[in-house]
């Protein structure tokens, strides 16, 4: 992380901030306060403002991802196939809310507006592995199964 922070150029323009935040998140899974402060120094944009900008968007999370990063689709096609129950149940099972990480940093949850497999809904993914046409009764198994594999 330090290496990456050192690799940034001296000056950063305002319109480049989002892409640096994206790059940081791609690498480390979340946004650190120290990184926002670094960007603030290099771009001369107050850190409060950068935080305000970043928090506006879905993409950025401010807590490290859990060991298992769970993504769930909330698209309309998933919804009409009882996607809402899936989301609510998932929150209960992994004891996390959207953009949050569970207290034992085991699970983190991300709700995606549409994953793009509308014929396969509801779709859940755990660390990039997809589960399609998920039923509420299968959720526990999906989660615990990942646990065992790991």
């Amino acid at each position: 992380m330090e290496k990456f922070m050192e690799s940034l150029p001296e000056k950063i323009k305002k319109n480049e901030i989002l892409s640096y935040l994206q790059e940081f998140q791609d690498r480390f899974g979340y946004i650190e306060l120290s990184f926002i402060e670094l960007l603030s120094k290099k771009s001369e944009i107050p850190s409060g403002k950068i935080y305000g900008i970043a928090s506006f968007y879905n993409q950025f999370r401010f807590k490290p991802k859990g060991k298992f990063h769970v993504q769930v689709c909330e698209g309309s096609s998933c919804h009409v196939n009882s996607g809402l129950i899936i989301i609510e149940e998932l929150k209960k099972i992994i004891k996390t809310d959207e953009k949050e990480t569970s207290s034992d940093s085991k699970y983190s949850l991300e709700i995606i507006p549409c994953m793009g497999a509308c014929s396969q809904g509801p779709v859940v993914s755990v660390n990039g592995k997809f589960f399609t046409k998920v039923k509420p009764s299968e959720l526990k198994q999906i989660i615990s199964q990942q646990d065992e594999i790991a």
Partner: peptide
């Protein structure tokens, strides 16, 4: 002031005015 100690954060129903982190 160009200080922006506080700014709007989040959006929609979660919009709030907050300091960094």
């Amino acid at each position: 002031l160009d200080i922006s100690a506080i700014d709007l954060i989040n959006r929609g129903k979660n919009t709030s005015i907050e300091t960094v982190f």
